[in-house]
Amino acid sequence: MTKIILRQLIIMLLSLITLTIFTFSLTRFFPVDSSITGNANVDNAAHLFFHYFDYLKLIVSGDWGYSRINGSDVLKDFLLYFPATIELSFAALIISISIGLPLGVFAARHKNMWQDKLIVSTTLVGYSMPIFWWGMLLVLLFSLTLSLTPVASRIGFEYDILPVTGFMLIDTLISNKPYAVEAFFDALHHLILPAIVLGTIPLAIFTRVTRASMIEALSSDYIRTAKAKGLATSRIIWVHALRNAMIPIITIIGLQISVLITGTLITEIIFSWPGVGKWLLEAVYRRDLVTIHGGLLAIASTVIFINMLIEITTYLINPRLRLQK
């Protein structure tokens, strides 16, 4: 148990070191900021090593330099925008799981019938959807034509909500403004459409994976035993089969982090969502190399960290892996 966690921690550390070597060499090739990289003309390999060490010290101590455009602290900026991205991704994940899972199970139960075929081909459609176009289409339909959802941003501008946690849904409720509840629903209302756009591709993938692993689980011996025991069908499906189908699904959830981050880059631009993706792209448009460097480092470390968590979780919930030793 501790051995596994230790192993994953070491892997994560190695990945982080590789990452910092990579970003360090970027700062070498592209003069990012003298405060981060130190003296630029270094020809001695030993010097280079010391410079890397200095760089590492700065990164670890949280000094990631200052934006070239507005002079703000890059790490602080990242932490300011990050909760918005998490909130959006989390909402997308919830939507995709809560729809994808039952849909996959449903398709598996009706394997090779028309319902199944319809679901499978729909997921393929969702899977091939260029997300920037999908976002525009939904805005065109729900916001501009039907006026059902707001056009952009996290909350109506008239609400003055101080970022305490950075999560709008929480901040609205803990703010002691008279309109706290109203603001909460407004924030929720703003969240729906971007979350649906962002959740579409993960939804397609979850449905497919759930379907595949449910089909496998349903054809196994213990299900036949359960049926023979006379258990209710819904219980067999939702408790016995799904539990075993969960393992590949959880692994897939981990893999979706990458998909979600790619998606947020574009979704945040379309919905003018003040998150990390929009922040990073603005920096790209302004060629603010210090911010780009910090953004890459921060997002990549987050991905590495989440991957580690997923590895450990998969291990914990998989009895076979646990018992292997």
Partner: peptide
Amino acid sequence: LILALPSLLLAIVIVA
């Protein structure tokens, strides 16, 4: 490491 990172993010950073 590279595979773990979102490819579009990397492409954007490279283009930047």
